[in-house]
């Protein structure tokens, strides 16, 4: 038998206009580690779902303004929320209501009053439908991104620097270096290219990469060296 999914970190929206019930269910779910959001009306439920994108919505079918059926229907019609599983709750043991809720898109149904263990079991079962969302980009359309990572210049001369960082740079890689201190001295950024020398491993458990500075003339190179060496 497979292990039940943990509720830790799972965000669950409970929709019910009865404060006692909201409190009761919140306590059960928070004891299991879930993050609980609540709503007392259709509008509040829609707004909460859009804002928090919960892993599961649990809704009472009988509410004063629009019913839980309307909520289930609205959630299933929206692309952004159609994959969120919904458990319907009702005090009515009425096959018609159960059938209607399921046909609208509810993945399960629970009669009130219910015991906590059954409640948790239903939630685990429904959460399996709300699988961890992953999107794999097709190879041809993989987007590029820029990573920014802190590093230290530890040594320098007029044509290059030695950079200590948690990144083992490949040879001949171009990178951009920025810092407020460089900015104050008139260098918006520095462009550098790793040399063909393989990075070494420093005693601090980081990589030492030798980089050649690109695009600096002699005057700027001297200015940079004075800045790095702390010479006025």
């Amino acid at each position: 038998m497979s292990e039940p999914l943990s509720l830790i970190g799972k965000e669950i929206l409970i929709v019910d206009d009865a404060p006692d019930f909201l409190l009761f269910t919140r306590k059960i779910l928070e004891a299991q580690g879930a993050v609980v959001h609540q709503a007392v009306s259709f509008e509040e439920a829609i707004s909460q779902t859009v804002a928090t994108c919960p892993h599961l919505v649990i809704t009472d079918l009988n509410m004063p303004d629009k019913s839980g059926f309307d909520l289930i229907s609205a959630l299933k019609k929206n692309n952004e929320t159609s994959n969120i599983p919904v458990i319907a709750l009702s005090a009515l043991n009425d096959p018609q209501s159960i059938f209607k809720a399921v046909s609208f898109g509810a993945c399960d149904y629970l009669l009130k009053p219910f015991n906590a263990n059954l409640f948790i079991q239903k939630i685990h079962k429904s959460l399996k439908l709300s699988q961890f969302q992953i999107y794999v980009f097709p190879k041809e359309t993989r987007p590029k991104a820029t990573l920014s990572i802190n590093a230290d210049i530890v040594m320098c001369n007029e044509i290059g620097i030695i950079l200590e960082s948690a990144v083992k740079f490949a040879p001949n890689e171009e990178l951009v270096l920025e810092s407020p201190s460089l900015g104050f001295s008139g260098f918006e950024s520095l462009t550098a290219k790793s040399t063909s020398q393989a990075p070494r491993f420093s005693s601090r458990g980081k990589y030492l990469t030798e980089l050649n500075l690109i695009g600096l003339d002699e005057i700027l190179a001297k200015k940079l060296t004075r800045l790095l060496k702390g010479v006025a």
Binding site: F137, N150, V154, L182
Partner: peptide, 21 residues
């Protein structure tokens, strides 16, 4: 090469990557 003042000069380094998932 010679050491920079204070032994280290902090910078932010930027480089490109590809996101697969």
């Amino acid at each position: 090469f010679s050491e920079v003042a204070g032994g280290r000069f902090q910078v932010t380094t930027k480089f490109n990557v590809e996101i697969t998932e």
